[in-house]
Amino acid sequence: MREVFKQVRDRIKPPQPASWQTLILLSIFSAIVASITSGQSPQIAQRIISSFGWLFLILGVWWFTYEDGVKKKLTFFNFFIGPWIVGALICIYLFGTVEGRPMPTQAAFISWAPISSIIWSSPKFVKSDPKTRSPVYTNPTVSRRQEIILVLLSNLILSCWFQFYFQIGTWLSENPNLRGGDFTRSGFVWRPNPVDRASAISRGVTLLDSAAQILEEQLEGKPWSEVERWLEQRDQQIPNLRRQAQERLPQASENNLWNLEVPAPSQVSETVYDLPLQAVWTGVTARSNGFQLSRTCRIAQGRKQGPPAQFQFESPAPPATSPARPRLIGTVNCGVISEVEGTR
């Protein structure tokens, strides 16, 4: 048992009291203590302990990246990227986990590059005093000053790019109709999986299909007078139809980009109406004119002879309409879906 303890201790014991391993161990220790510390809602004690854990982790990693072998491995084309690792940790600590968020915030991403470049340039302002060997402030040499200026400026551009990314996100959430657009012509943005025309059209087709289906359910086989009343009260019926058709679609954000419109029907003859159904794309297109799918449903009068008619024959008090006539019902026949462009 003692052997085991000794082995474990040898394994984790830092080579020197003052080394990066000590700091990492301290941060692990703080993390463990913070995780077993429970408290009331503000969790002040836990936050203080975990802050110390972060502090030790940042200092430990900072130290570690400046170790000789590590520094060599982290240097690409004579450029040492260690500070950007330390900077990322600092930003995650400062802007990410303090409030216990799962994802670092916008501020963390934006400040990452400038903070890292400040960390990168800070050793250049320090030299060791030849007598006391303590660090003192110094002006960097001319070539180093030039380096610092260039690195700082290019990192500011980097954080501008991050800010631009978040700006795009804001624009898209403020203008949801942009989301279905096609960005292939854009000189600024790129989307890994674009909304392709085929799948967008298939959603519009689904919308028209379900609208036609609802229309059939409501009118097919119904008495003709009811059908005519439906057509007269179009203004009340069509919002219903639109809502029901949208409800039948599978849930997807792009579905809202198709709008169902039902213009006034045209009367072909006394008993035949053509009711157009249109799915209009409300998303922004590359051209300013719109894009829509259209389908015409023919609502016609049909005759139906069957038990109800016979039943009317036998009734003792025949209704005002002649019972001898077969019942007049509505029939719905929807045509093919066609694509219309440039109508908006």
């Binding site: 994802m103 978040f166 996100g169 804001t170 960005f183 854009s186 943005v189 790129w190």
Partner: peptide, 12 residues
């Protein structure tokens, strides 16, 4: 806040 639309073209 996070979106899949990236400003990669602008950066390049």
């Amino acid at each position: 806040m996070f979106t899949d639309v990236l400003p990669l073209r602008a950066i390049l």
